[in-house]
Simulated assay, not measured.
Amino acid sequence: MSWPAVRDNTSPFERFLLGAPEGAVDKFFSSWSPDLIMHLRSVNSNVFMGIEAYVSRAWSIERSFDRWFFHAGSFLRMLEACDAVVSGSEAQQHLARHEFRGKDLDIYVPYHGLLRMGRWLKQQGFLYQASGGKHLLFDAAAIMLASAAGRDFTGYPGARFKSTVAFSTFNFVRPQTPSLKILAMDGAQVQLIAVCGDPIRFLIDNFHSTGVMNYITGTHAVSLFPRSTFVDRQMYVCQDTARDASVHQAWMAKYRDRGFTIVEAEDEVPNTPEVREWCRKIGDSRTWVLPHERSDFGQCRSNETAVAFGNYSLTWVSDDEEDTGYQ
């Protein structure tokens, strides 16, 4: 008895995504912008699985932090516990698919999470380096900052003092050892930046340009101006560059070397909704939000679940419901 031949209806592109070496797939997508890659997920289930496999490698949170910490998951849980975020170069390079390696890890933490985060860094082998007239012992320096700002470590205003301190930086370094070199853990300097209030509000109000308004929480990576930053490669200056001109020239030169165009006040601003729209909110349709935990696409789900990346979302539905696809 002969069996009918089974036709392979998969396209060459699907076979490439699912069967080619990971390095070849990664190289293929390296020049694609993230929004185009995410659009492909709606083609069919094979392409979706191939894209999800690529996304889990390209935007791997473990890869972003494995040079700093032995267990990235422990660090993410500490970010959540302290209401802290990672921003600066490390957040940008994570969203940019690790196109460069930053020198410092910048952690922005509200006053009430400062002591706990600093103690955790010390447990990971980092040493506190006092600077700027701070106390030589970290615990004492952290408590003195909170006292001067009029806040206790629950974050509530104290009764006797009012805050005059916007932020304060605490430096931690980790000496390189043979074991760390073998593990390629070359992340040696962490800047713990204590801010009065919400760290996300702080970066919006104080960062020099839109290109660095990206941050990593314990659960998501977020970019507030993703299209201009990661697609158009443009950074819009948000500060008066006439003040501290040498400082501004330094960061502009650094990002120009990385391939960005710096748009200053006298330059013409492109008419893009991301920049021109006045009523922007964190998490709006212009924002990219990339969860650290990818969807379990190998199982059917009876309830609707969304996996979001900015304004693109994949919707899982049960068999008796209509598949709404991408939005």
Rank of each mutant, 00 (worst) to 15 (best):
G155S: 02
V47G: 08
G133A: 06
P291V: 04
A84N: 02
E322N: 04
F172Y: 04
G259Q: 09
F48R: 15
C82F: 04
L136I: 05
S223L: 00
G283H: 06
L17I: 06
N206F: 10
Y108Q: 01
E322M: 09
E268P: 09
V212Q: 06
L79M: 05
Q234Y: 01
V43Y: 06
F65P: 00
E268K: 15
W120E: 10
S228H: 01
N214C: 14
P110N: 00
T287E: 01
S42K: 11
G158I: 06
T210Y: 03
E277S: 14
R97M: 14
G298N: 07
D35W: 08
W251Y: 06
W59K: 09
D296Y: 05
K134C: 12
M144L: 14
A84G: 08
R276I: 07
N171M: 12
M38K: 06
F172N: 04
F13P: 09
M144C: 08
V47C: 04
P110C: 00
R57C: 10
C82Q: 05
G197I: 00
D232W: 03
Q123V: 12
T10D: 10
A159M: 09
L76T: 04
A306Y: 15
V237H: 05
D205I: 02
G325V: 04
F260P: 01
R67V: 04
S302C: 13
D267G: 10
P157L: 08
A146T: 09
E52D: 13
F225Y: 15
F138H: 05
R280W: 07
T229P: 00
Y108P: 02
W68N: 00
A20W: 00
T241P: 06
S223I: 02
L136Q: 11
P110Q: 01
P157G: 04
Q123I: 09
P110S: 00
Y236R: 03
S163Y: 03
S60N: 05
S246R: 14
Q176M: 13
S313Q: 12
C196S: 12
V263Y: 04
V165M: 11
T229K: 01
Q299S: 15
C82M: 05
R258P: 04
L17T: 02
L192Y: 05
